[in-house]
Simulated scan of single mutants.
Amino acid sequence: MKKYQVVGIGNAMVDVLAQASEAFLEEAGVKKGIMQLIDMERAVDLYGRIGPAREISGGSAANTIAAIAHLGGRTAYVGKVRDDQLGAIFAHDLRAQGAGYDTPMAPKDSPQETGRCIVLVTPDGERSMNTYLGVTEFLSPSDIDEAQMAEAEWIYLEGYRFDGPESHEAFAKAIAACKRGGGHVSLTLSDPFCVERHRDAFRRMIREDVDLLFANRAEILSMYQTADFDEALARAAAEVRVVACTESEKGAHILADGERWHVPAVPTQIKDATGAGDLFAGAFLWGLAEGQDLPTSGRMGCVAASEVISHIGARPEADLRALFAAQGLG
């Protein structure tokens, strides 16, 4: 048995969550419903303009790993923070969930601070993310522990991580070590604008290295440059062994070995859509690692996504395993 079921690699962030009106987004020049990269000056300015906020450790892949740890999975995370207040919060929160986290911190005198994402949540539950990557942008191959990757049944790669200057090299090192150890590679596309920036690199990795692809409807349409959802799914399934694609309130579509399953969403009152895809991926991977079949893992993913959008914040607050049991899962 390997030490880890899943090891995630991503942007280590602290989320700053605040409610905002549509008018505020327009006035502040924030594009609704997407992630946009901002610099430190913009981060400070925007933080000064928002209302009351809640700071929660986040980052897409870190949320996924926190969900797996919450479920009792053997898991660890790789992502860069600085030795500062937010960095300490991030490390404490992840370890408190039960995940391993040993990425070396950048020193206190580093010119970049720990990254943060200012998440503005409109009354419809949609989130608009304004991300200052900070020191996490500079995750390098030297931060990848090959022995750790070889001890993973799965590695989980965050698409947002493609924006760093040495990201591709770091991913390549992790993939090679994982594959040498007999492990499998999963990738999440993260955001349609991220796909636009790195489509060629994504496609190359999907064709050559990825065993399981996570995406939502907008991301997979962007990846395959088509308006036909079924066509995009089919093209993805021709390139990768398993595709798990979410479609908001319509649930998720799982494709593998020439078969396709639709998994219905679990109805809930949406308070904050942040983390829905992250929790879907976490529960799905945990299900697979625990020996569940693809449709059951997909149902677990939809239950976890429903839980996380029912409250503010991108990490589970209810007992996911109890929720699975209530749905006859696991």
Rank of each mutant, 00 (worst) to 15 (best):
R197P: 00
E153K: 14
D109H: 07
Q327T: 00
K31M: 07
K271G: 02
L120K: 05
A218D: 14
W286K: 05
V242D: 03
R321F: 10
E137I: 00
N63H: 10
A265C: 14
P264M: 08
D145K: 05
D257T: 03
Q36G: 01
A218E: 14
C117A: 15
E166K: 08
G275E: 11
E219I: 02
A281W: 06
A62N: 11
A91T: 13
A304V: 05
D83L: 05
L189G: 11
D45L: 07
D191G: 04
A150V: 02
D84A: 04
A273I: 07
F138C: 01
Q225K: 15
A28I: 05
A12N: 12
P141E: 07
S297P: 01
F284A: 12
S128N: 07
A218F: 12
A218I: 00
I175G: 05
A106I: 01
G125M: 02
T131D: 12
V308G: 08
R199L: 03
R207E: 14
L233C: 13
E247K: 13
M13N: 15
R180K: 15
A215E: 07
E259I: 01
G29A: 09
Y156K: 06
L212I: 03
Q269F: 01
L187A: 07
A318P: 00
T64V: 13
A150M: 09
R161W: 02
F90C: 06
D209F: 02
R127F: 11
N216V: 05
A66F: 03
E259H: 15
A20G: 03
G33C: 06
L288G: 08
D293N: 15
D319P: 10
A273R: 14
E126W: 12
Y132K: 07
A238P: 01
